[in-house]
Design a protein around this nucleic acid. Sequence first.
DNA 1: TATGAATGAGTCTTCATTCAT
DNA 2: TATGAATGAAGACTCATTCAT
Lengths: 206, 206, 206, 206
Amino acid sequence: MELKTTNTEQLILETAERLFLERGYTGVSCTEIAKEAGVNHALLHYYFRTKEKLFNQIFEQKATQLLEFFVEAFDRDLPFFEKVKIGIEMHFDFLVQQPELPLFVLREVVQNKERKDQIIQKAFPVGQRIYKIITPAIEEEVKKGVIRPVKAIDLLLNIASLNVFAFVAVQVFFDIKSDGKSAAIRQFLAQRKKNNVETIIQSLKI
Amino acid sequence: MELKTTNTEQLILETAERLFLERGYTGVSCTEIAKEAGVNHALLHYYFRTKEKLFNQIFEQKATQLLEFFVEAFDRDLPFFEKVKIGIEMHFDFLVQQPELPLFVLREVVQNKERKDQIIQKAFPVGQRIYKIITPAIEEEVKKGVIRPVKAIDLLLNIASLNVFAFVAVQVFFDIKSDGKSAAIRQFLAQRKKNNVETIIQSLKI
Amino acid sequence: MELKTTNTEQLILETAERLFLERGYTGVSCTEIAKEAGVNHALLHYYFRTKEKLFNQIFEQKATQLLEFFVEAFDRDLPFFEKVKIGIEMHFDFLVQQPELPLFVLREVVQNKERKDQIIQKAFPVGQRIYKIITPAIEEEVKKGVIRPVKAIDLLLNIASLNVFAFVAVQVFFDIKSDGKSAAIRQFLAQRKKNNVETIIQSLKI
Amino acid sequence: MELKTTNTEQLILETAERLFLERGYTGVSCTEIAKEAGVNHALLHYYFRTKEKLFNQIFEQKATQLLEFFVEAFDRDLPFFEKVKIGIEMHFDFLVQQPELPLFVLREVVQNKERKDQIIQKAFPVGQRIYKIITPAIEEEVKKGVIRPVKAIDLLLNIASLNVFAFVAVQVFFDIKSDGKSAAIRQFLAQRKKNNVETIIQSLKI
DNA sequence: TATGAATGAGTCTTCATTCAT
DNA sequence: TATGAATGAAGACTCATTCAT
């Protein structure tokens, strides 16, 4: 809704986003954000009032992205196995762009009651939408005898587990900051992507 | 070696463990630990010198537990599918005891280079041990034509993904602290445990 | 270069100078400096970052003053005995303005290796300059048969000893802070000034 | 008067003396003294009650030594010039044994009103004794026409200045702790000792 | 005599925030 | 819009001291 964001405001926001994603709310100070962005640290409060408000703005955006993209990935009119395959791959590719995203959201959700409530409220409609997409699709395939009966929630959690954990693992095993997009990382992720699709597809078959 | 740890020292350690598991290194202050434990905060430095040392003591123990138990779970002389099933279940049950453990370790590993290196060093031998257990078991089954060819690392990551993520999800969806072991949580976890075993087993079949 | 120093910054600096001169680095706390200056003690760190940096700024200035003035005192184109007499008197008069200076510098130099190295580096060129002024002057007088042969370094140390010690003694025997410039102190110093000139001059004669 | 001092008490005392001489009252902590002495730091309070009391005990002893030895040096039945020469040399040799002593005493006296009063009280009778030794000796020589008229107090301060300052200078120019008794230090001190005697003697002559 | 445990006060320093300009 | 100055609260940590054993 906020149509006009100054360059400076945007700069602060981007810097804060980068640092918060790296080290979380408590791990970053306002002074550091300001210094990194090259602005006076009083300015940060001029634009965002408090650290909490600045953080929440970023957090809300990021959490929303994470959730909504999960739905989008599966919201396609395709044959069932295609839908699942494409969905997993799209979700995975989305995370490639922002590998720090899932752990960032999880970390903060778990640490802060308010944010947990906030995200659950947001997750509920998202969950319903995706549920409505996946449930009938599963039922149809089960009726056709192509897949074994599974609950939609389990399937979705399985996908989320495998995809998200790939990026958590990447952050544990590799130095994402300095390695950037090294060949080793790319290879590891490619393998996990392929594995995740196969694992889910295979696990559904009778 | 340190056979005698005072009651007070133990009390501080336990309090610190609880708080650190909840909110991480940067999210907890020494003053808070001391207050929560009901002791003077100088005492905390008397026993542990620095916050870092206190934290590391806890972190190392927790990370070791997490890693070693994963191996133990699969280090059993059983038929392949049994080994996998029992392994997943044991690992899952272990996490039930300490649902905050995986996110705690992941959080700190990702945030702190030193701790990442520390845990990778520790993870390496553990990884090798489990790899030696699983690889020949897989090969044998593949030869028998019972399972499709999969890499051990992929299988293990799949298991870790599904099990760990169940507890991350629990922390997101439920209020672990106050709910304690509510029926809803128990039910959710029971369902995920069953699902995880089935998903992995099914995904292996040809 | 820094032309503008706030009133407050200057106030802190002056208060710190006064207290450090009185009681040395370890004898004064940041809190005390702030309280004495009537400012919040966070402000002290806002301007100077650390106690060490604040102290060093003062110390360097004071040590430089002390050294450079010693040279200046003797850097005059005068007949030998005049040069010595005027030099001693100028140096003495300089110390009258800042009686705490020599003991302050000596105290910190002896207590802190880093500062010792720092001052020795600074003292070296100063020493050379004054050496070049005094040595030929002595040699000439010796050749004329007016004074006995002495080493420049000994003459200079003798002067420094007598002058500096007068102010150390003043601090021991009198209460410089409350007495301020009492008659007793003035008289004592006048007598020492006269004595120092006579002692040095007499000691040079054949 | 305290006849029995335990080994441990003595050990603490010696350690404290060494550290206090090096870095002064505020520069040393009780914990450090105890650690250095290898004893529990509560023991230090068992023996000496407070840091202040421990320090004062050492300070008083050291200050007394410093003062009394000055008298002793000149309290000899010798011809005037011999008395002065021997006195300077004895005093100088005494300081060789404890080069840190004068600066230590001066530092603490200046920093602490109580200790200043304490030492002045002690210095008074000492001063009188030495005054009574030197004054008539000077008068006699003046009468004989051998020396120019000087005040006893000036002569004594001159001697103290030259001798003490030699050891202050040694601490500034050399690294007394690591160099120990290096050749360079020995040479410097030998030269100063010779210079001090000559300077004083020459300065007295008509 | 000796020590481990405990503490209140104090150390330096950083924090998020406010305000006048 | 932007900043330098200012502050109270909190950060980790050390201090001298006490006390029970």
